[in-house]
Amino acid sequence: MPIWTESDRRIVLKAKRDHPRWSWDAIAKLVQDDIHSGSACQQMWKRHAKDRPPPTPLGLAERRAIAKMRESDPPTPWEDVAEKVQFSVKICQVFYKYHVTDKEIERGRQEAQSTAIRQAKAEAKAAEAKAAKEMEEAKKRSSVVLSYPVVKSKGPTKITAASRAYQRWTDDEEKQLLKHVHEFTAATVAKNLKKKKQQQQDNTDWEEIGKKLKRSEGACEAKYKQLTLKYKKNEIRG
Rank of each mutant, 00 (worst) to 15 (best):
H36P: 06
P75E: 11
A65G: 01
A219H: 07
S37G: 02
T101D: 01
R168N: 13
T188C: 05
R118V: 04
L58K: 03
Y148E: 15
A161H: 10
T204A: 04
Q200W: 10
A65K: 09
S88T: 15
D205A: 05
K133M: 08
R21P: 03
E174P: 06
G108D: 08
I159M: 00
A124K: 08
L60Q: 12
L60N: 07
A186P: 01
G59C: 04
A65S: 12
G155I: 10
A82N: 10
G238P: 13
G38C: 01
S147L: 12
H48D: 06
A138S: 07
R109F: 14
D18Y: 07
I35K: 02
N203W: 07
A219C: 09
Y98W: 14
K121N: 09
A187T: 09
K14R: 08
W78M: 07
S39G: 05
L229T: 15
Q201E: 15
E134A: 11
E111Q: 11
K152S: 11
V85L: 00
A26M: 07
K179M: 12
I91P: 01
D202M: 12
K214Y: 02
Y231M: 13
A161S: 13
K140P: 05
R215F: 06
S216H: 02
E173W: 03
E104T: 09
E235K: 09
R215I: 04
A126R: 12
H99R: 04
Q43R: 12
A120G: 01
I66R: 01
K130A: 15
K195E: 15
R64A: 06
A122C: 05
L227K: 07
Y98R: 04
K14A: 14
K175G: 08
V150R: 00
L229K: 13
T185G: 04
I3M: 00
I11T: 14
K175Y: 08
V94K: 03
A116F: 03
D33F: 06
R47T: 07
S114T: 11
P57T: 08
K195A: 10
L213R: 01
S72K: 04
A15E: 14
A190D: 09
M69E: 02
W4E: 03
S114C: 05
T170C: 00
M44G: 04
F184I: 07
A122Y: 10
E217A: 12
R63Q: 15
D102C: 07
K50R: 11
T228Q: 06
S114P: 03
N234Q: 13
Y166F: 14
L227W: 02
D80P: 05
T204R: 01
T157L: 13
S72D: 14
L30F: 05
S114H: 10
E217F: 06
L178C: 15
K130M: 13
L227G: 03
M1G: 13
A131W: 05
K175L: 13
Q86S: 10
A67K: 01
S88N: 06
E79H: 00
R70Y: 01
Y148S: 06
Y98L: 12
R107H: 14
P149S: 14
S143I: 10
K140R: 14
Y98Q: 05
E71M: 09
K191E: 15
D25M: 12
E79R: 09
I11L: 10
L193Y: 04
P77K: 03
D172M: 13
P156K: 08
K121L: 14
D73I: 14
